[in-house]
Nucleic acid binder design. Structure first.
Length: 300
DNA sequence: CTAGGATCCTGTCAGC
DNA sequence: TGCTGACAGGATCCTA
């Protein structure tokens, strides 16, 4: 679930709360969610939190690190000791669910990190996410991290265009979801970036013009920047000031989960289709499989 | 090498 | 009400 903007938001939030705190104790409620010996990180201090694509890496003292990948439904929730809720004293980010507000641990709590001043909960409904202990020197050799492509901001148009050419027969949505090709996009931002660039998600990657590749790369940057600037999906965007639930996607998403609503560019109803096995949202007028020039030629 | 589909797991929701 | 199948903000493994 959490894509690059959410993970970056969590990284920034947790840096404010957890840096320099010692991990006093680790409690594992689900063996599948924790890889490595927990004893190695107990007693170590959190020096830094880095992000590689959608993965977080906590660098600890003792030359040890822990990588946390939230996958589809992971969350990280920090609570100060003695406090249950409240934006001032706690932080929650990741897949938005009521666990942000629950008394913790709850049914979905997989790992508990007892820190000096508070507690960090790793919650994960579907158990696809994990915590993994890695020697700090070996973080960048980790199989997942090693294979990651650059983020859209670190890639120029030529590089992106060449990468698309290398996967010319796969549909463009599947291509930009592949973290080995371009890193950071997930199902939300892939749809949003394609809408931004007016490209149909089923177009073959090799069929994009250089100009379209440029627009798509720009879209990837813009939609993720907008999300980071609006705070990603965190407790602050999940709970509105009056305590009712908000929908942070409303803040920036133009097509994602907006099927049936009018496209803000042309008024056509947004549709939900299935592409590369994923729910996919498009404006059927702005994003056509054949360019409008070609369509006109055929129908004339 | 690429491309597509199944798979991991739990919970929710629509439809009968 | 209870059941059933589809689906879900990710990535990997297997197959052709």
């Amino acid at each position: 679930m959490p894509e690059l903007p959410e993970v970056e938001t969590i990284r920034r939030g947790l840096c404010g709360f957890c840096l320099q705190q010692k991990i006093k104790r680790v409690m594992i409620n689900c063996d599948k969610s924790f890889i490595g010996p927990k004893e190695i990180i107990e007693g170590q201090r959190i020096d830094n939190i880095r992000r590689f694509g959608k993965a977080l890496v906590f660098d600890l003292t003792g030359n040890v690190s822990m990588m946390i990948h939230l996958r589809m439904t992971g969350q990280l929730i920090y609570r100060l000791k003695g406090k249950k809720l409240g934006d001032e004293d706690s932080f929650a980010g990741g897949h938005p669910t009521d666990s942000f507000l629950n008394e913790l641990p709850d049914k979905q709590t997989r790992v508990i990190f007892e820190l000096e001043k508070g507690t960090l909960y790793f919650n994960d409904q579907r158990k696809f996410g994990f915590v993994k202990v890695i020697p700090t020197a070996e973080v960048e050799d980790d199989n997942f991290i090693r294979q990651l492509a650059p983020e859209p901001w670190d890639m120029d148009v030529d590089d992106f265009y060449n990468r698309l050419k290398r996967h010319k027969n796969s549909c463009i949505k599947a291509t930009i979801l592949d973290q080995k090709i371009i890193c950071g996009l997930g199902n939300i931002y892939a749809d949003e970036a394609l809408y931004y660039a007016s490209i149909h998600p089923e177009r073959l990657a090799g069929s994009l013009s250089e100009k379209e590749a440029e627009n798509l790369l720009e879209g990837a940057r813009k939609v993720m920047e907008a999300s980071i600037n609006s705070g990603g999906s965190t407790m602050a965007t999940y709970v509105k000031a009056d305590g009712t639930k908000g929908d942070y996607l409303r803040l920036f998403a133009k097509v994602f989960r907006r099927e049936g609503e009018p496209c803000e560019r042309c008024g056509t109803e947004i549709e939900k289709i299935r592409v590369a096995g994923r729910g996919t949202h498009i404006c059927p007028y702005c994003q056509q499989k054949t360019s409008r020039q070609e369509t006109r030629k055929v129908t004339r």
